[in-house]
Simulated scan of single mutants.
Amino acid sequence: MYPEVIIHNTVSLDHAVRGFEIDLGLHYGALLALEPGAVLAGSATARSGIELFTDVNETETEADRHRPEVRPDDPRPVCVIVDSKGILKDLLHFYRNMEHTKDVIVLVSEATPEDYLDYLREREYPFIRRGKDRVDLKGAIRELGERFGISRVVSDTGPDLNDVLIREGIADTISLIVHPVVVGEGEKKLFGRAGGRTALELRKAVPLEQGTVHLVYAVKK
């Protein structure tokens, strides 16, 4: 079983992902309405989330070193983080303790440092090792479905990982919360390095608060 993959993001009218005030309530309300089995993020986005919203100096407790019980009837998604370089070593407990996720799974590659793999094993973080120099994202997502029974993956991450999802033909759907603002030059744009032309089919356009719009497109393959 290969999971359905949905790219979800909040952007300005000119597709900037920063440089304007994001309505987190709208963003995560729309994300959870997609009913993800897993929420996918890159390690840089995950680390910046820790730095923005938590005390990065908060050390892990003994309980943080053990995988919590995962109940089959728990409706919360798992948090899946792509971290081939191991930059979240000693930081993953922040995600383990998040109330809206039930587990943390890490995607790594053959090039991932061995001490990071030891850190994952010692703390009982499930991980998927695919790819030589970087994570084979298509293969890793397939394994998410096969090993963990995940049928829908929704990305909540920055442009780099989303570009890969488009460039490698992984994404099935694009969900965008568009804010009525033009950021202009100097900010990174979504899909700036997504490769060649990708045809889309509009599935939904819903006006939201204060001029924002929720757009949902199917990716034509």
Results as ranks from 00 to 15, higher is better:
Lys138Tyr: 00
Glu51Phe: 01
Leu92Ala: 09
Val104Gly: 08
Lys132Met: 09
Val104Lys: 10
Phe53Arg: 05
Ser151Ile: 00
Lys102Ser: 03
Tyr95Gln: 02
Ala140Ile: 04
Ile87Asp: 10
Pro77Lys: 01
Asp115Asn: 15
Gly149Glu: 13
Ala44Thr: 14
Lys102Pro: 06
His66Phe: 03
Val78Phe: 01
Arg96Phe: 02
Arg71Cys: 05
Glu146Ile: 03
Ser43Ile: 01
Met98Asp: 09
Tyr125Trp: 07
Lys102Ile: 09
Cys79Ala: 12
Ala44Gly: 03
Ala41His: 03
Tyr116Gly: 11
His93Cys: 03
Val82Cys: 06
Gly86Gln: 05
Thr61Glu: 06
Gly145Arg: 06
Gly139Ala: 14
Arg121His: 12
Arg47Ile: 06
Ser151Ala: 14
Phe94Val: 07
Arg76Ser: 04
Leu107Gln: 09
Ala111Ser: 15
Gly145Ala: 08
Arg47Glu: 15
Asp115Leu: 13
Phe127His: 15
Ile128Ala: 12
Val135Met: 10
Asn57Trp: 01
Asp90Tyr: 08
Ile81Gln: 04
Glu51Lys: 08
Asn97Gly: 11
Val153Ala: 10
Arg76Pro: 03
Thr54Pro: 01
Thr112Met: 04
Val104Asp: 00
Phe127Asn: 11
Leu117Arg: 15
Thr112Ala: 07
Glu60Val: 00
Asp133His: 13
Glu99Phe: 10
Lys85Tyr: 00
Val108Thr: 15
Ile50Tyr: 02
Leu107Gly: 07
Lys102His: 02
Glu124Ile: 05
Gly42Glu: 13
Asp136Cys: 11
Glu58Trp: 02
Asp83Cys: 03
Thr59Cys: 00
His66Glu: 07
Gly86Arg: 01
Arg147Gly: 10
His66Lys: 13
Gly139Asp: 06
Arg67Pro: 00
Leu52Ala: 14
Leu52Met: 09
Asp83His: 05
Gly149Gln: 05
Arg71Ser: 13
Val56Gln: 05
Glu69Gln: 08
Phe127Lys: 03
Glu99Arg: 15
Glu143Asn: 02
Arg130His: 12
Asp133Ile: 08
Pro113His: 13
Arg65Thr: 11
Val39Lys: 07
Leu144Phe: 06
Val106Lys: 08
Pro113Trp: 09
Ile150Phe: 14
Ala44Leu: 06
Ala140Leu: 07
Glu69Ile: 11
Leu88Asp: 05
Phe94Ser: 10
Thr59Arg: 07
Asp90Met: 02
Glu124Thr: 10
Phe94Glu: 04
Glu114Ala: 15
Ala44Asp: 00
Asp136Ala: 07
Leu117Phe: 04
Val80Trp: 03
Glu114Lys: 13
Val104Phe: 07
Asn57Lys: 02
Asp136Met: 04
Lys85His: 12
